[in-house]
Design a protein around this nucleic acid. Structure first.
Lengths: 80, 80
DNA sequence: CGTATATTTAGATGTTAGGCTAAATATCAA
DNA sequence: TTGATATTTAGCCTAACATCTAAATATACG
């Protein structure tokens, strides 16, 4: 699957767009993000997976937490 | 439903993005567009509907044909 | 009017996607 | 190593979506 394809798929869901909006303000752990949503962590984890396949976000383990952050370079690529 | 919501939904499908790409080159009738796709006119008609709800395209009857064209202003709006 | 052409609408069907709960994995701290 | 915390993976269910065929609508033309 083409990356642009993955990006469009990722952006199609409102929850995923909201995750991106939150990360726009700075990196957040999965738990911190979950606090902003009425859906389960498991469902969110699925969304992180989709966003990662599109390479829109990156994850990094920090102790017990996993911290997500925006991969800004992709946005520039896709805009063109 | 918000218009931005509709736009994201519309762009999520590859066939719809391809319709937009074709119209980028200029207006086309439903029949002309159909010639470029392996799916039925009925299915395409459904896609036109989605693209119209998002206000990404406009339609105009010309005799027996219905001619579709890009609504370029929306692209500028959503880019911001 | 009656028939042909162009497109849409309606109804049915198979697939994809998002949600949930429960179980698994990974790290930390005692 | 055992227990607690944080997150992901697996399996399932339901709703939404893309597609199809067949029927309906609209225009053109003899």
């Amino acid at each position: 699957m083409l990356r642009s394809e993955q990006v469009f798929r990722a952006l199609a869901d409102p929850n995923r767009r909201r995750i991106l909006a939150i990360l726009k303000a700075g990196s957040r752990s999965a738990g911190e993000i979950a606090g902003e949503f009425p859906i389960s962590m498991a469902s969110l984890s699925h969304h992180y997976g989709v966003l990662k396949s599109a390479d829109l976000i990156r994850s990094e383990r920090r102790g017990q937490s996993i911290v997500y952050s925006l991969n800004t370079t992709v946005f520039e690529d896709v805009a063109s």
